[in-house]
């Protein structure tokens, strides 16, 4: 884990950016000391609104501020924003196309001490299904900071998924990012690891270990789950023929689903999904152990890669056999 948590990088970046853009407003729901929107609050008290523990209200107030010409960043726990406030987000942000930015903190299982009520393992599924929503998942603290101005200056609703914790660092500060454009972090032709959020760093470790075994895994970071970079995925499927997706999220409706949906239509390819396999996760002593216990371990990624490779070999043999029969 890096020293700086993703939430702190985000909170500091928002406060810094607030200096440059007077249209930016921050709202919170009695979690400013947790989401770290309190950096912004301290610097711009007149542009900060704490609405108490009322996430649906915060979304609607932000919609009103957006109608009034501001760029509101709403801050809260991903679990509540993506569930209790989902109707407000659907109706008053997506359908009404208000320029609201949702900084959804404590995402995934990053609030490891608090357990399943606080984990957010379906938010990507919920948000990705909404027309007009852009969904972004930073991989580490440095990346979270880079997104703040990009998200603020993008015209339209954005869901920015923020971890409570740090993550294995994969980016340098100021790394160039583009909404909707995935990144190739490692070349490779044997298979492709496709990761988002905290699993990007874990996949990088897995790729190193696979390399020692003589397997060269390509590593793609899909930070924008919507709109998805279909071309990059298609290229990886065609060139490597075996895929593993990895996300700190349910295997239902998140990155794995998005990749499967896209490639099933355009280039069906052996695919293994690393994610939380449709269950509620327990409380943990620390995030690394909890993630391992939730099926998100590096060894799990490596095992999935090996399964994907075996399926690729089988399908190649099938193809050869069919060619011989012809």
């Amino acid at each position: 884990m890096s020293e700086l948590s993703m939430r702190e990088a985000y909170g500091r970046a928002l406060a810094e950016y607030g200096e440059l853009n007077p249209s930016v407003i921050a709202l919170d729901v009695d979690t400013a000391a947790s989401t770290l929107s309190n950096f912004f609050a301290a610097r711009f008290p007149e542009r900060f609104f704490n609405l108490g523990i009322a996430e649906p209200c915060m979304v609607d107030v932000a919609a009103g501020l957006a109608l009034g010409g501001f760029v509101p960043f709403i801050n809260g726990f991903a679990s509540i924003l993506s569930l209790r406030a989902l109707e407000q987000i659907r109706t008053c942000v997506c359908y009404a196309r208000t320029n609201v930015k949702i900084a959804a903190s404590y995402a995934g299982v990053s609030d490891f001490k608090d357990g399943a009520t606080h984990y957010s393992i379906t938010d990507l599924a919920n948000l990705r299904a909404l027309p007009g929503m852009t969904v972004i998942v930073p991989a580490d603290a440095a990346e979270a900071a880079v997104w703040v101005p990009l998200v603020a200056e993008f015209d339209g609703p954005v869901y920015l998924r923020i971890s409570r914790a740090g993550a294995l660092p994969v980016h340098q500060p100021g790394t160039p990012l583009h909404i909707g454009k995935g990144r190739t972090l490692r070349p490779g032709r044997d298979l492709t690891l496709i990761a988002t959020g905290s699993m990007v760093g874990r996949c990088a470790v897995a790729a190193e270990q696979l390399s020692v075994q003589g397997i060269e895994a390509r590593l793609l970071e899909i930070h924008t789950l919507k709109p998805l970079d279909g071309e990059l995925l298609l290229q990886a499927a065609e060139e490597t023929g075996a895929l593993v997706t990895a996300e700190e999220h349910s295997i239902i409706g998140g990155l794995g689903s998005a990749v499967a949906e896209t490639l099933a239509e355009r280039c069906p390819t052996p695919l293994e999904r690393i994610g939380i396999r449709d269950h509620f996760c327990p409380t943990g002593r620390d995030l690394d152990q909890l993630m391992d216990a939730c099926g998100l371990s590096v060894t799990g990624i490596i095992a999935a890669a090996q399964r994907a490779l075996r399926r690729k070999d089988h399908s190649l043999q099938d193809t050869k056999r069919k060619r011989k029969l012809q």
């Binding site: 919609a63 009103g64 501020l65 008053c92």
Partner: peptide, 23 residues
């Protein structure tokens, strides 16, 4: 403002009123 599902008006109005005050 778009509306339909009930309940949103007062909270959205809060946002609009805050925006007017800030601007």
């Amino acid at each position: 403002m778009t509306s339909g599902l009930l309940g949103h008006g007062v909270a959205i109005g809060v946002g609009l009123a805050l925006a007017a005050r800030l601007k």
